[in-house]
Amino acid sequence: MSKVQIKEESDIVKARSVAKEMARDLGFGLVDQTRISTAVSELARNIFAYAGEGEVYIETDWDHRKGIRITFTDQGPGIEDIDLALQDGFSTAGSMGKGLPGAKRLMDRLNIQTKPGEGTRIIIEKWLDK
């Protein structure tokens, strides 16, 4: 398992590379490695953009499943409406609104826990044993 603190923009790249390396070592192919690292990039960027700082936790062993699981935690403003945030094109930042829905499509599982004013925790998983 690995932990990357997100404080500045370059930390997004760090999180992405660590995730990609771990995915490769676990046996994911190039396409999946790219999917995983892109999803990490999106969610880590959201931490940087909306919460300012937070943490990315990457693990490859849980619940007897073979795969990669990445947890993004921040103490930022939280997400008001999860369903809305997961819609393509929804953005409070005038951006493309592709991050959350995109990450969901790129991974096998995406789970959001959030409380306005307290923060957000997002878990994504990609499994080798589907």
Binding site: T34, K98, R105, L106
Partner: peptide, 13 residues
Amino acid sequence: RPEVAQTIVHLGV
């Protein structure tokens, strides 16, 4: 690259 192209499509860009 092919893997990048696939990812872009999934991302919905």
